[in-house]
């Protein structure tokens, strides 16, 4: 599903990320492990096409990201990649449903209200489409962020530290929820985490070493 070869990223002429080879098949679930500062977020950004690496090959869903022009990369990201960030950050001025419709609109997809409502209902948010983000609990807001990431049926679903700051019960819920949503659209799931609690729950693991 995605292939990474000889990836390196420098920041201020220091190597902050180095991955010799890593690949995953469509529908697989992966954990990216490593202590903080090991480059997990940077790797996620590279996979998402948010960050162009200094060197190396990144192919996602058959598409060499380096071959895309900036506008093409934005479109590709909107359509094929869903991202759940550590800080959820829904657009505060838009209602929950509009946050989802915005994701469809910005990805250049038709705005499908029924699909958006369906996704919300699947995440136990059926009663919240007209709520503003500040009216939601943290758990609800996190589920909306997941809904926003999967509303376009992405091929690749990325999550950055989704379980940090959560108690054990919630932690497992969020993990299961991400896995269920990824399965629902047969997306490849990559979770970057340093959370030891979920280590045993995902079979595929990719360990990032601390860079010199």
């Amino acid at each position: 599903m995605f292939v990474i070869r000889d990836l390196r990223h420098d920041y201020d002429s220091k190597v902050v990320l180095q991955v010799d080879a890593w690949q995953a098949a469509q529908g697989e679930h992966w954990l990216v492990l490593g202590s903080s500062g090991s480059g997990k977020t940077t790797l996620l950004h590279v996979l998402a096409g948010i960050l162009r690496p200094t060197a190396g090959l990144v192919v996602v869903a058959g598409q060499d990201l380096a071959a895309l022009k900036p506008a093409g990369l934005d479109r590709f990201r909107g359509k094929s990649i869903g991202i759940v960030l550590q800080r959820l950050h829904l657009i505060p001025s838009l209602k929950v449903l509009d946050n989802l419709l915005l994701a469809q609109y910005l990805a250049g997809m038709p705005q499908d209200r029924r699909r958006a409502e369906e996704v919300l209902a699947g995440l136990d948010l059926a009663g919240k489409p007209d709520a503003y983000p500040h009216e939601l609990s943290f758990g609800q807001a996190q589920r909306v962020a997941v809904a926003r990431a999967v509303v376009n049926r992405p091929r690749l679903l990325l999550a950055d530290e989704p379980t940090s700051n959560l108690d054990d019960a919630r932690c497992m819920q969020v993990l299961e929820l991400l896995q269920a949503q990824a399965r629902a659209c047969n997306a490849t799931l990559v979770i970057a985490t340093h959370d030891q609690r979920i280590k045993t729950r995902v079979a595929n693991q990719f360990e990032l070493g601390v860079q010199a």
Partner: peptide, 16 residues
Amino acid sequence: RYDLAIMRTLGAGPGR
């Protein structure tokens, strides 16, 4: 700032 970055991750080009 963060909203704008989020919109970029959702597929919006800088022109948007």
